[in-house]
Computed example of a mutant assay.
Amino acid sequence: MGYDVERFLGSIDEELKCPICCGVLEDPLQGQRCEHAFCRKCITEWMKTSETCPVDRNSLSSSQLQPIPRIVRNMLNHLSIRCDFIAEGCREVISLEDLSSHKSECKYNPEHPVPCLRDCGALVPKNRLESHDCIKDLRSLICCQQKEIQELKSAITILVSLSEQQKRMASLNNSSLHDLSERYEHLKNSITNLEKPIQQILQLAIRSDSLPSGETGTSIKDKLVEETTLEIYISNVDRCVTAGNLRDYLARNDVNVIACKESLYRGWKSDFRITIFKSDCSKVLDPNLWPRGIVCFVCGEYYSTKTEGNRDPQEPGPDSIVKASPSPWMIS
């Protein structure tokens, strides 16, 4: 329904009135073809029983209704209107555009909240002030607050659980990062150990330019290998140790292994022939690298150099003595 014309100051143009209720247009719509404007509630009720325009009786359906032009909407918004609560004592005159915001703040509004007269601290609509029960309303307020507290507790529990999961993931990421750092350091050390042999190879390659024309590429390759590599002989190794185990053990101790194979099997003991770079010779001859009983020979000049391990091997427990398992000293 439209606004009562008597509430407005000054005359109202007939184009701004609803043809159905004869009041000033409220939330208006217009027909798409005839362009007659109506209050939304008025035309909605009309369309329930008729599909014609109330003014010219031409065909009109709900799908043909549309908002009014902006210029008409601006004319409505600029009209001056008295407050809805003039009977309660409000004498304010505001623009139609500001009527809604004024009603929510008007102190004469029967639903405007005011403090309880009994000082319970509640804000009560004026029209319910006499029937206000402090205890009942406070109990209802407490129930609502308890419900909100339970919801907050549930949310906190979920957040704590998510936080614990993130901490565990962070711990796993830190562990993985630590492993990657160790691998990086090992790779860097390996590269450093290879730099000297590579320099030797480059020097040999440079010297090879001055070789007699009769020498072949194969002899040059053999000389390069002879100059940069070294063969060692590991004796008295437990039979459960394989070539792969031994290669991994030496790699963990920064020894670059070129080749590793078993050369002799003697009962429960084995011997291995291993090719390394000459720059790693001091590492394999370190007695602390090998447990007692294992002997390392440097081949080439009829075992010109040898060393015997002097550290105590870790003894396996009674449940771990399995012939197929690597020796404890290899996995320490």
Rank of each mutant, 00 (worst) to 15 (best):
residue 279 S to A: 09
residue 130 E to C: 13
residue 57 R to N: 14
residue 24 V to N: 06
residue 302 Y to I: 05
residue 125 P to H: 03
residue 146 Q to E: 15
residue 276 I to W: 00
residue 89 G to H: 00
residue 207 R to W: 10
residue 158 I to K: 10
residue 14 E to Q: 14
residue 45 E to A: 08
residue 257 V to S: 02
residue 33 R to V: 10
residue 157 T to N: 06
residue 53 C to E: 01
residue 189 N to E: 11
residue 225 V to T: 09
residue 190 S to M: 09
residue 165 Q to H: 01
residue 238 D to A: 14
residue 126 K to N: 11
residue 161 S to Q: 12
residue 305 T to V: 10
residue 212 P to N: 13
residue 189 N to Y: 08
residue 109 N to T: 14
residue 181 S to V: 12
residue 189 N to T: 14
residue 104 S to P: 01
residue 219 S to E: 14
residue 12 I to D: 11
residue 290 W to L: 12
residue 40 R to L: 07
residue 208 S to Q: 05
residue 120 C to M: 13
residue 225 V to R: 10
residue 322 V to Y: 04
residue 317 G to M: 10
residue 275 T to L: 00
residue 42 C to V: 07
residue 135 I to G: 00
residue 298 V to M: 09
residue 199 Q to E: 12
residue 305 T to L: 14
residue 72 V to G: 02
residue 148 E to W: 08
residue 57 R to M: 13
residue 143 C to R: 04
residue 263 S to A: 04
residue 133 D to V: 05
residue 187 L to W: 10
residue 77 N to G: 05
residue 257 V to H: 00
residue 194 L to F: 07
residue 294 I to S: 05
residue 313 P to S: 15
residue 143 C to E: 15
residue 31 G to V: 04
residue 240 C to E: 14
residue 198 I to C: 05
residue 206 I to G: 06
residue 82 R to H: 11
residue 274 I to N: 00
residue 66 Q to L: 14
residue 168 R to V: 03
residue 195 E to R: 02
residue 55 V to N: 03
residue 305 T to N: 05
residue 8 F to Y: 02
residue 79 L to C: 04
